[in-house]
Design a protein around this nucleic acid. Structure first.
Length: 586
RNA sequence: GGUCCCGUAGCUCAACUGGAUAGAGCGGCGGACUUCUAAUCCGCAGGUUGCAGGUUCGAGUCCUGCCGGGAUCGCCA
């Protein structure tokens, strides 16, 4: 149950009462009213801005309206105090008997507590990674991979029907370069001297096994052949090998996407979907032949003023119209991408999310313009940009030079520190802020390392469960009967603070989900872990606050219910982030 | 030059899409271990939210203009 959503219903009801009593005009439109936890707990449990937001419509001073509303809300049996503060905030204090219902709810729902129906089963498509299939994933891909995967899990938890997708760029010049590189390795495998790998080719050793495989499969049959003959064959097989590599890399982070969508299939399928999409747009007058002005500020050396096929992107908010055909007559990447998003829409996705790297920021407007055009305004595309990750080792930057080919691969990072720290740290920052990743810090066992801190809280909860059995051998968290617990025994300030934090989880899920910001869950878990560690330590100073009290079974049960609820929420949150909730620190 | 993102404590970052006295961690200082694992906790110090205007009951958040950092700029993907 989302306490705040639940309570805003009561506020709406109170407003209706005021309308019926003639205090408020009957045609008043309730909008912008929120029910949220106040920043300062001293202000109570729930705060609403209703009086301030509605004052103008009600033609009443906010404080006066607040008085009237407060009087109605005070009659609620779960409310023990209502006061008005500042410009017209209404602060509501819930009865102590109310809070335990949150725990009852957690214990009944367990791993589903906090899940939401705001998605209402609507289909949403999340596309992420989509790296060129020309080699293993490197560290630059990690963030988008983890982000997309966590966002998908979050949306799933919020009631959306999620499909995850990887767009395979298997149609451009880069996969031709891959094919040529693989062909060299093929010749090498057959004993030929190949010398240096030329500029613009892929020099990595990872193509050697591909060459050997090709040699094994084709023998010498492709050696004398013309490039036009061997290229499509080698290209297809090299791409397959690269995708196998990439899927393996993703699997090491626990990522498995639903669909790998081939760019080439758009053109080489039964119908040319790119041409089809362009035709659709042309019929609606959105395509024309024309010239583009050169970019302002600096004109490229090889600028050639020529007429080309353009999409009227400016009609949908873009800065310039965009080219769809290259000078050699093939489609631009953008043209295929429009067709791809059109295809997503036709497959039933009104909601699309693309996760891109920072270097594609300049591409957002045109893609959103294209989606607007191709879906006639029905589809929505949100593009999440992931900023760069900087690697450090013990505070020292890790040097990488892309030219020399010695970039750090995704696999190297995962192999060194494990998937959990990688995933958590990639989500412990807003996606559009740059992120520092330190190989040493992320495996440290200290508060400085949030991964550990949260994991430790979960493990500590399980340590309590183990210790409980020594005093009450049959007292297990999973055998507690939620309705029989004496939860009113939980009354210390620290316990209630933890309880209030647990009560906020559903709200955090919904807010993260609406904003497409999974990092909020990571921050929430860090705070929840902090509350739990804090309560734990209070038990050292005040033994009567310890979770296990041999002389009082009812109290112990109530506290185990609290600890168990904490563990459930930690586990649910971690599951969305894709991090294992461990039960023991080794 | 155009466009997009970012400027918040000494450092790294939050701030629930416009709410009350802007919060955490690190670092600094001072405390708590015969432990339900101190792998943790408690307290103190630290701010003109880059600058200047505007919008309104109310702005770190929205609008405009500057300053500073990053990304990108017909046919690459």
């Amino acid at each position: 149950m989302n306490l705040y959503a639940y309570f805003s219903d009561r506020i709406f009801a109170a407003l209706d009462t005021l309308k019926a009593d003639g205090v408020l005009p009957g045609d008043l439109v309730v909008r912008g009213v929120t029910a949220e936890p106040p920043r300062d707990p001293a202000h109570g449990d729930i705060a609403t801005n209703a009086a301030m937001v509605l004052a103008k419509q009600a033609k009443m001073p906010p404080r006066e309206l607040a008085e009237a509303l407060a009087a109605v809300l005070a009659k609620d049996e779960d409310v023990v105090g209502v006061d008005i503060a500042g410009p017209g905030f209404i602060n509501i204090r819930m009865s102590p008997a109310f809070w335990p219902r949150i725990l009852t709810s957690v214990l009944e729902l367990r791993g589903n507590y906090g899940s939401s129906e705001i998605g209402a089963g609507e289909a949403v498509n999340v596309e992420y990674v989509s790296a060129n299939p020309t080699g293993p994933l490197h560290v630059g891909h990690v963030r988008g991979a983890v982000f997309g995967d966590a966002l998908a899990a979050l949306l799933d938890y919020s009631g959306f029907k999620v499909t995850t997708e990887y767009y395979v760029n298997d149609a451009g010049a880069q996969v031709d370069a891959l094919a040529r590189s693989a062909y060299m390795r093929y010749r090498e495998a057959l004993g030929q001297e190949i010398g240096d790998i030329p500029e613009g080719y892929y020099p990595g050793d990872y193509l050697k096994p591909v060459g050997e495989l090709l040699a094994e499969k084709h023998g010498e049959s492709l050696l004398g052949a013309d490039e036009t003959e061997w290229l499509p064959v080698i290209r297809a097989e090299a791409i397959d090998a690269m995708l196998a590599l990439i899927k393996d890399d993703l699997a090491s982070l626990g990522i498995q996407q639903d669909l790998f969508f081939s760019e080439r299939s758009l053109i080489e399928g039964v119908t040319d979907k790119v041409a089809g999409t362009i035709d659709e747009l042309r019929e609606r007058g959105l395509i024309y032949e024309g010239r583009l002005p050169p970019p302002k500020g600096k004109t490229p050396e090889d600028w050639e003023d020529r007429e080309q096929t353009l999409f009227r992107a400016t009609e949908f908010g873009d800065d310039v119209d965009r080219a769809l055909m290259k000078s050699d007559g093939s489609y631009t990447y953008f043209a295929s991408d429009i067709a791809y998003h059109n295809d997503k829409y036709k497959r039933g996705f009104r909601n699309m999310i693309d996760v891109w790297g920072a270097d594609h920021g300049g591409y957002v407007k045109r893609m959103q313009a294209a989606v607007k055009a191709v879906t006639a305004g029905e589809g929505a595309l949100d593009v999440k940009i992931c900023q760069l990750v900087r690697l450090f080792r013990g505070g020292e930057p890790v040097k990488m030079s892309k030219r020399a080919g010695d970039f750090v691969t995704l696999r190297e990072v995962v192999d060194e520190v494990g998937p959990d720290p990688v995933r958590f740290m990639m989500l412990y920052r807003k996606n559009d802020a740059p992120l520092d990743f330190d190989f040493v810090k992320v495996t440290e066992q200290s508060r400085d390392n949030p991964v550990f801190y949260v994991q430790y809280a979960h493990a500590r909860a399980y340590s309590v469960f183990r210790n409980t059995l020594e005093v009450f051998p049959d007292l297990k968290p999973e055998s507690l009967n939620p309705v029989k617990l004496k939860l009113s025994l939980l009354e210390s300030e620290e316990e209630l603070e933890l309880l209030r934090r647990i009560a906020q989880f559903p709200r955090v899920i919904e807010a993260s989900s609406v904003a497409h910001e999974p990092h909020r869950i990571a921050f929430y878990l860090y705070e929840l872990a902090g509350d739990f560690h804090s309560l734990w330590n209070r038990g050292k100073e005040l033994p009567q606050l310890r979770f296990i009290n041999a002389a009082n079974r009812d109290l112990t049960e109530a506290r185990i219910a609290l600890v168990s609820s904490t563990a459930e929420v930690l586990a649910s949150g971690l599951r969305i982030l894709g991090v294992q909730p461990v039960r023991e620190m080794r």
